[in-house]
Amino acid sequence: MSNIHDEPAALKALQDDIYRERVLRARKMTVAERLADVFELSNHQFGLMLAGAMHRLGTRDEDAGWLEVKRWMQRLDRVREIGFYSTEKPTDK
């Protein structure tokens, strides 16, 4: 069975199809509907992160799971925010 990742043109066509579907769906929505989706997806995402953290720790303790989620978030922030923020007031415009 062929692997689409070995065929750049086919992979690009598939990626474009998926993206096109997402964009056309979003175009049919109002600002209010899109915002409602942002809230719903965000709440759901944290539920999944908690489940993943508890599974990884091998615990049923939600508090321990949330601590692990916070640790993950801090790691992500450290990676994403390098160079964007400073503890000293920037002087150059």
Binding site: R22, V23, A26, M29, V31, R34, L35, D37, V38, L41, S42, H44, Q45
Partner: peptide, 9 residues
């Protein structure tokens, strides 16, 4: 998300 493709944050 209000103007683009809604995603989690």
């Amino acid at each position: 998300g209000a103007y683009g493709v809604p995603h989690s944050t």
